[in-house]
Design a protein around this nucleic acid. Structure first.
Lengths: 127, 127
DNA sequence: CGACGCATGATAATCTGTTCTCAGTTGTGG
DNA sequence: CCACAACTGAGAACAGATTATCATGCGTCG
């Protein structure tokens, strides 16, 4: 049904090690440290399998390439640095979303994304 | 510098007529009623010109094709119907976004997107 | 251990959205 | 009205992300 392979372990570990969502490319690079030379196709196949099992979530940010993160991090949102284009996890949520909802629209989920400049880029430390 | 052509008028009118953001394809179809047979390239070129003048805004919704809307609709957000995939304008915004912001992250703008089922799809009226 | 079948890797192919090409058209200013 | 330059349209080309292909590798079950 679904094998536990060295590569998939490496992919999952890479996602867990990271404190932010990763792109398939980044996952491939990270996982290649655990298990040398993982193919991009393998990353996509593994991600698809993980998503089917709800172990991994897809994080799509407009203007950014799609990225992925473990599904056990609870409800949260994301911030994007417009300079380094990294995606960061936010914690918590807001209230008052109900006020936005049109009558007769049944909300199933929501996304909140902040765009700005991250700490590193803001202090001129890094870019 | 920039000519006012029949096609561009039609494109702008189509955007204004709509009560929701439109995709380039939808714009082409709408504008073709005003001015028969508008090429997709023309739509993209016009949109690019309008965006440069800040007359039109790009609306990117994760999981949806990019769409466009007039820039004079003020600050608002969007809702997407997961069934018919149409994008709707919401009015107003929420408070408490500050609470999400990590220290040292300077927020420049934000997006809020609701996903769910629209009135038409929810009542079983349309799909 | 042995067989079965899912997983892997490199690359080609695909898909979707966007831009380019180029000859011909059409605003605009004078 | 003229000249010039921007605009147009159709389709090819492009870009990036994702999926398919196919021979081979390797978990898993008994």
């Amino acid at each position: 049904m679904s094998y536990s392979t060295r590569q998939r372990e490496a992919i999952l570990n890479t996602l867990r090690r990271a404190d932010r969502p990763l792109t398939p490319q980044e996952i491939r690079e990270g996982a290649s440290q655990d298990s040398a030379g993982i193919g991009l196709a393998t990353v996509y196949r593994a991600l698809k399998a993980f998503m089917a099992r709800k172990e991994v979530l897809l994080v799509e940010i407009p203007g950014n390439p799609p990225c992925y993160e473990p599904a056990d991090r609870g409800h949260h949102h994301h911030a994007v640095c417009e300079q380094c284009r990294q995606v960061f996890d936010l914690h918590g949520c807001v209230q008052g979303l109900d006020a936005l909802v049109p009558r007769n629209f049944r909300v199933q989920r929501h996304d909140i994304t902040l765009y700005g400049v991250c700490a590193a880029c803001g202090t001129g430390a890094a870019g």
